Computed example of a mutant assay.
Amino acid sequence: MNLFRSVRAVTTASGTGVIDWDAVAEAAKSSTDPGDLTLSAEEREGFASDVRDARTRLQTVAGVEFDLPDTVEVQNRHHWIDANVRTFRRVMAPVEEHGVSVLPGVTRVLNTGTMAVMLSFLANNVLGQYDPLLLAEADDADHGLYFVRPNIVKVADSLDVDYPRFRRWIAFHEVAHAAEFGAAPWLSTHLEQRMEQGIEALADGGVDRQAFRELDTAMTAVEGYAELLMDWAFDDDYSDLRAKLDARRSGGGPLAQLIRRALGLGLKRRQYERGAAFFTAVADRRGVQAASRVWDHPDNLPTDEELDTPEKWILRVDP
């Protein structure tokens, strides 16, 4: 790590946009240890077999057909930063198009520093990621599946859990997201439209609460359904892994907790819990394949009210 280089990259941010993305990447990587990516043949095959097994089990349990992403990568932290700089650059494009009229140089440095700190923090904590490549411009853009090997190894060690089992659990969770987007070809467009509406409103100085509310509801369904599939598809009970990981995430120093709140990671946990409770209730009454009907059409997504009253969703979608 080179903190001086990281600070220099931020303070010398340049260009015409509100964020210097090249400086973001340099600063985030300079302040982040890339981690070890030395894979034995056995470990490489372990990642591959975990992903294949997850696809087979999830197809069987959910009764949905889906393809694995064309891009499946075992990454170090710097690889993850590069991939997500590209993602955030796409998402923030509508805001950057508006630019700033007051102290643009100072604003650019502050925004660049904020993004670098955020990506550095996430790069040290993300275990796996399913990336649907929202807002990608290329017509042939496909989704991606990433595993940050140094973080998986580190967390498994800190939790004192079996590394192959922990790695497999992460694989099942991320492949569950691939199953959702594979079962619902319309889902990417649905999320993109709400995201674009919300970001464009912010760029114009307003807040489109309806767009963000619909985005939150859809993401709650995405996270909750993945949790349901995990309950049914994983090899064994994983409550010990979830409890240990939740305890670890609720710990950390004041700075880590502040960053987590700023990044909305508490909201993500709430989405997991609320969505999982909804889909568990539906599956208990009608089975997993009835719960999978949520992906048949955008109108089948639960409303905010239905997330807390699953019986209303059942009466509407699967009477």
Rank of each mutant, 00 (worst) to 15 (best):
residue 262 A to T: 07
residue 194 R to H: 15
residue 304 D to M: 06
residue 266 G to D: 13
residue 243 A to Y: 09
residue 302 P to W: 01
residue 202 L to Y: 11
residue 204 D to H: 08
residue 271 Q to F: 08
residue 254 P to W: 05
residue 219 M to W: 13
residue 217 T to H: 12
residue 281 A to W: 03
residue 187 L to R: 07
residue 228 L to N: 01
residue 199 I to F: 03
residue 191 L to C: 07
residue 203 A to V: 08
residue 270 R to T: 15
residue 272 Y to L: 00
residue 256 A to E: 14
residue 253 G to F: 01
residue 260 R to I: 02
residue 311 E to T: 15
residue 246 D to R: 15
residue 266 G to T: 15
residue 269 R to W: 06
residue 218 A to M: 08
residue 300 N to C: 06
residue 284 D to L: 03
residue 306 E to M: 11
residue 238 Y to E: 10
residue 186 W to K: 01
residue 225 Y to R: 13
residue 228 L to K: 03
residue 209 R to G: 13
residue 215 L to R: 04
residue 212 F to I: 03
residue 213 R to H: 13
residue 264 G to C: 06
residue 213 R to W: 09
residue 287 G to D: 03
residue 290 A to C: 06
residue 233 A to E: 02
residue 242 R to G: 04
residue 219 M to A: 06
residue 238 Y to D: 09
residue 269 R to M: 05
residue 309 T to C: 00
residue 263 L to W: 04
residue 204 D to T: 08
residue 272 Y to S: 00
residue 246 D to Q: 14
residue 283 A to F: 14
residue 210 Q to G: 15
residue 210 Q to W: 07
residue 194 R to Y: 14
residue 254 P to R: 02
residue 312 K to G: 00
residue 222 V to E: 10
residue 267 L to Q: 14
residue 262 A to S: 14
residue 264 G to A: 09
residue 257 Q to C: 08
residue 284 D to I: 02
residue 279 F to D: 01
residue 204 D to K: 08
residue 260 R to H: 07
residue 269 R to I: 05
residue 249 R to T: 10
residue 302 P to N: 02
residue 235 D to R: 13
residue 300 N to L: 00
residue 266 G to E: 12
residue 218 A to P: 15
residue 310 P to S: 09
